[in-house]
Design a protein around this nucleic acid. Sequence first.
RNA 1: GUGGUUGUAGCUCAGCUGGUUAGAGCGCUGGUUUGUGGCACCAGAGGUCGUCGGUUCGAACCCGAUCUUCCACCCCA
Length: 457
Amino acid sequence: MSIQKPTLPKGTRDFGPIQMAKRNYILETIKSTFRLFGYQQLETPSMENLSVLTGKYGDEGDQLLFKVLNSGDFLKKVKGEDLEKGAANVLPKVAEKGLRYDLTVPFARYVVMNRNELTFPFKRFQIQPVWRADRPQRGRYREFYQCDADVVGTDSLICEAEILLMIRRVFAELKLEDYDIKINNRKILTGISEVIGEPGKEGELCVAIDKLDKIGWEKVQEELTQRGFTEDAVKKLEPIIDLSGSNDEKLAFLKGFLSESEEGLKGVAELEEVLKILAEFGEGQEHVDFDVVLARGLSYYTGAIFEVKVNNVSIGSVSGGGRYDNLTGVFGLEGVSGVGFSFGVDRIYDVLEELNLFPEDQTQSTNVMIGYFDEEGRNYGLKILNGLRSAGLSAEIYPDYAKVKKQFNYADKKQVPYVVMIGSEEIAQNKVTLKNLKTGEQEMHSLEEVIGMVKAS
RNA sequence: GUGGUUGUAGCUCAGCUGGUUAGAGCGCUGGUUUGUGGCACCAGAGGUCGUCGGUUCGAACCCGAUCUUCCACCCCA
């Protein structure tokens, strides 16, 4: 029998100890921020029934769902005629479960199933992996983590303002300074499409405008024409594309531009209110940038839209979100509005790595390692080990009888800062030798002294 | 889903127009040093050249398929 090399499925990764330390640094920052703002943690199963997942992400989304083959004889419901009709006909008979595609739909399902137990407004955060059968690329994986925070059951714009505050807090903690929180409002986009004489086409409008950064205004015009926008409409759009100035200046302009659109003015008013609430918090508009052409998640967002971009790095977009009316409508619970956003941990990881912003000592796990020469030393070491741990120091003993060189090598590789060495002399004096691996200094001390010294370092 | 790209030692990569026994650096193991890691020196182990098939007297090298990697598009975090 030939030995086969193990491999990972496409688009998945292992996280080793070093990576986990760094990931936890990011995740702890995010979690503590969510908790600080009153959000409670939720977890849902990796698998959902396909009836919950399908139809929520569009045709393209359905294709990207990982389906789980039924257990046992998964073919028992399939008939010959089903096979002839094609995959779409066979699928529901061989798979009834799928891996979750995002955290929002499972959350909506949870809210509907627990509507009578929940106290609204309900603020929840959720940090779990999601799966997409996408083609992997840099910063795009088939298994990746989302960190969502949503509040449902309120229309209050305080929530929007708090999202801005949470993003700023997380980024400040992570020492990320050069970034912009782009903010816009779906209603403004709707208003613009009305005003330029193409009502109801804001979706297409935004898909095209969204590429502005990438392909430029010229190409966007081409695409708009291709999508059936009139020349007149494209021309009317021009002042929007050129819009610049402070948030307040842009809003002032839009009030005039959108004066014919009730919906558009409502969007402007909402945005103004969010900024006003921010001011009531005693906070400024640092990093907050009203971006009229920001368009994302248009199929579900109905109010505010957020996106966070880190400047001068290869992967810019690290967070996003928005307000949606009627999150739970598809599951039969009407009128539950919510607003939420999500941090992309994997991308934040890459950004921090690129900017070299991870703290130095993230990987250090053990404070002290105990080494020894013989059985007597080992047994004495076990007592010392227990003492160190009781004092709250992370400690370990080298488990095998081995050359001192090997023991020290192990400590060095693991970046353990201190080694306690035990030989006959130490036992006789009821002390231990403490060696600082960074400086190379070593001296005999009592256990209590060692505890004090290591803790002080 | 469309188009392109990559695969040689644990890692990063050499390897000529197809020609004997496939190399380097780092890492690993052992030694110089049986109460001491990093540094230095010495020695050693480790490869079905992604996989399967084809062309050829002969394939890491040419051809096909497949998997994988990365990139662009679509879309998205």
